[in-house]
Design a protein around this nucleic acid. Structure first.
Lengths: 159, 159
DNA sequence: GCTCGGGTACTCGGATACAACTTGTCCGAGTCAAGACGG
DNA sequence: CCGTCTTGACTCGGACAAGTTGTATCCGAGTACCCGAGC
């Protein structure tokens, strides 16, 4: 899995602590974790294309969440970075086998494909069940000062 | 995910239908699905290194299952091909963040990492719960002639 | 007829190229804000 | 003092390289079989 997924989730999480309407440039978000600014910008662009973030150019511009944290699941973020297709893609090699049937869709018929798909669906369901709001709540419960500190860091120039 | 996983699972499944002690060369297994022989050989080598298959060189040699199909899970095959490490690897970017703590293992502490790990564990558990014997039983229930046809194909030179 | 030895063909195994994708970087189009200028 | 225009800096966005992983191939080391010769 791409490393940008980790960056994207943490960046989106930080955005949940900002006041509504406030935008943060990609360079500032990159400085938070000392990441390559241009590359993080690329990932944030993907999130914007997926409708998770909205981007505004120009001074005082940057990225902000496009909808409420309750409506953004980890699955959404992962799909935005990694692409929509599944990790295990059935190439239907049974079609090349000796006992093939012409009009059969082996993506649904093949028992192996079904088993792999079932496992992947369990993974996706687990990710879809966790929203940014859930993550944020857990973090705040463990470290109540996180929201204020994060917001202050993005507001000031402090490292 | 690597495409070799699909090849490996189907090849192992075919091996479950052979009589005990019978070995099949990689070239023959590749011909079954019209796969590149040398590359499939490479995947089978990985399965042999993982202890799933045993290989014997020379005439009448080839690959065969190293243990009973009941004791080989899909997780074993996937891990043999893809490697043992997880898809989402936490790089602990929180360590570079402003509120870091020196001696903390963020792979366990970070809430994001925990959520991703939970999803991946669900995936792995689903794969570990399906053995080659289960797959074989399902296939035989749907198509009772599969064992005989497969065995006959590998025994004869028929396409 | 039986045993033994050499040759041969067959198998895996690792070393070796090629291609695709992830990672990383750069510069241009567009935009907002601030400042200067004129009324 | 107020409104307007110009200038400038700042932002994203896509186009452009480099490195790493997956894909594919080839040839050599080792082995079992087969066949023929000798007893």
């Amino acid at each position: 899995m791409s490393e940008g997924v980790e960056w994207a989730i943490h960046s989106c999480l930080n955005l949940t602590w900002l006041e509504p309407g406030e935008a943060v440039p990609a360079a500032r978000m990159a400085a938070f974790y000392e990441l390559p600014p241009a590359y993080l910008n690329k990932q944030l662009q993907a999130l914007a294309r997926a409708g998770i973030l909205t981007s505004t150019p120009g001074p005082r511009g940057g990225f902000r969440l496009a909808r409420r944290p309750e409506d953004i699941s980890l699955m959404d973020v992962v799909a935005a970075i990694e692409g929509p297709d599944e990790a295990f893609r059935c190439e239907e090699i049974l079609r090349q086998g000796p006992g093939e049937h012409e009009g059969v869709d082996y993506r649904r018929r093949c028992v192996v494909s079904q088993a792999m798909r079932r496992a992947e669906m369990a993974w996706r369901a687990e990710l879809a069940g966790q929203t940014l709001a859930d993550i944020r709540a857990t973090v705040e419960r463990r470290n109540p000062s996180a929201p204020g500190e994060t917001r202050a860091w993005f507001a000031n120039l402090r490292t």
